[in-house]
Design a protein around this nucleic acid. Structure first.
Length: 428
RNA sequence: GUGGGUGUAGCUCAGCUGGCAGAGCACCGGAUUGUGGCUCCGGGGGUCGAGGGUUCAAUCCCCUUCACUCACCCCA
């Protein structure tokens, strides 16, 4: 291989890109329907934005960021997630002055320097939606409903929605201390990793997949049982709203998120077929984030979906999806010039058909046989053949590729618009 | 960052205990001069991931390295 792509940075060739594009398009449609507007934000931000918002001690900031100095020495980072940049733009442009409530979404690449594996790339794409300016439970419920709507429209089979609450500054610190004490009391049963976590981020021991740790923490106190009155009430209302809508969700008593800015409601969606990476989307409430980066004391909640992971989930459940979408992209008409003299008319007719919305592939160059093979391979429904005979008569030969008999119908080469489409399309 | 698996044609892979590198599919051309699919015939294509070592001889054995992949960690 000459110059390979960078590790973890994948090319999406037409077949894959079609599926990815469809996912993004459908998601965007649903979000627009929910009142969200798209924003396009930079891929590069100052490193301090992520350090301050995501949290200095999170895995993302500690070891997963693509960080490099700009020419003047400013530390820049390829965005590892979308919420912090959006919050930055929100603050920078004083969007809170424009409207009490903002609903914004984005689609684009994110970068994390992790070891690649199934469903995990160093450059991947997310569709994210953020509802800023509302702190009432209805906003949480509405965001979750939106997430469910997107998943349904995209066609994710049997998603599992896990919802939990992380409490806030009023109740989490006390719980953290309690959990640390709980863990230290039985630290001999925890794995080395978890022992280390006890000090820095005790909540993580709940997330460990080690059998021993799971057993040791099975009866650990749960944050959802230690919420302060305000958080407890908020969560109860969110749950009630979800239930009233018949949304299928599961309480995750030990849901932990890898970003420090989350408070109260957090959630995660998983789907089958993703190997060890089950999550296709996640999100939560981040009431302190905007103030933390120098903005107004405005609350927000949002989610992000992993586009590549959605694709894996979709294709795991429907292996024929890629092929079907490719077939749909086949040209309807293959315009085939035979000889240089026919090229002018072939190109013109192709343009006329396309102007009417017909998918047209223009052939050319090679023998009739090889052009026919190509038309067949592309899945063209009809071939419009233009050679010397046709030029002389000003009538192109039309062949329906589904017919086996060698029938030949003539199409007036000087037709335009709907008449041309009718002549080509109605011939059988 | 750690561990396992795998690197042979564009793709999927075969190649027994070292002895000149193969198949299927794909691609290109032909089988009536301007008509596809099925069939038949032919063709182009390979530094056997890279570097080093052992050997008369290495795709095969040894070392190193790189890549891909799965898993851990963590996450979309």
């Amino acid at each position: 291989m000459s110059i390979p792509a960078v590790r973890g940075f994948h090319d999406a060739l037409p077949e894959a890109a079609r599926v990815l594009g469809r996912i993004e398009r459908i998601a965007a449609q649903v979000l627009e329907r929910h009142g969200f507007s798209e924003v396009r934000l930079p891929i590069v931000e100052r490193t301090e934005l992520f350090a301050r918002s995501i949290g200095e001690t999170t895995d993302i900031v500690e070891k997963e960021m693509y960080t490099f100095p700009d020419r003047d020495g400013t530390l820049l980072t390829l965005r590892p997630e979308g919420t912090a940049p959006l919050a930055r733009a929100f603050v920078e442009h004083h969007l809170d002055q424009r409207d009490q409530v903002s609903r914004l979404y984005y689609v684009g690449p994110m970068f994390r320097h992790e070891r690649p594996q199934k469903g995990r790339l160093r450059q991947f794409h997310q569709v994210g939606a953020e509802l800023i300016g509302r702190e009432d439970p209805l906003a949480d419920a509405e965001t979750l409903v939106c997430l469910v709507d997107v998943l349904e429209a995209v066609g994710v089979p049997e998603p599992r929605l896990l919802v939990g609450s992380l409490g806030d500054e009023a109740c989490r610190p006390a719980y953290r201390d309690e959990l640390r004490a709980f863990g230290e009391a039985r630290s001999e049963r925890l794995c080395g990793n978890c022992r280390r976590r006890l000090d820095k981020n005790p909540l993580r021991i709940l997330d460990c997949k080690e059998e021993g740790c799971r057993e040791a923490t099975a009866d650990a106190p749960a944050l959802v049982d230690r919420l302060c009155a305000a958080c407890g009430e908020h969560f109860a209302q969110v749950r009630a709203l979800l239930d009233a809508q018949g949304i299928a969700w599961e309480l995750d008593r030990r849901l932990v998120r890898g970003l420090d800015y989350y408070v109260r409601t957090t959630f995660e969606v998983t789907a089958a077929g993703l190997g060890a990476q089950g999550a296709i989307g996640a999100g939560g409430r981040y009431d302190g984030l905007l103030a933390q980066i120098g903005g107004p004391a405005t609350s927000g909640i949002g989610f992000a979906l992993g586009v590549e992971r959605l694709r894996i989930a979709l294709e795991a459940a429907d292996p024929g999806l890629e092929q079907r979408l490719s077939a749909e992209a086949s040209p309807t008409v293959f315009v085939m010039p035979i000889g240089a003299a026919a090229e002018v008319d072939a190109l013109r007719i192709a343009r006329r058909l396309r102007a009417e919305g017909v998918r047209v592939e223009l052939g050319g160059g090679r023998s009739v046989k090889s052009q026919m093979r190509r038309a067949d391979k592309l899945g063209a429904a009809r071939v419009l053949l233009i050679g010397d005979e046709e030029l002389a008569a000003r009538r192109a030969t039309l062949r329906d590729m589904r017919e086996k008999a060698d029938q030949r119908l003539a199409v007036d080469m000087d037709l335009e618009g709907a008449a041309l489409v009718a002549a080509v399309g109605e011939a059988r």
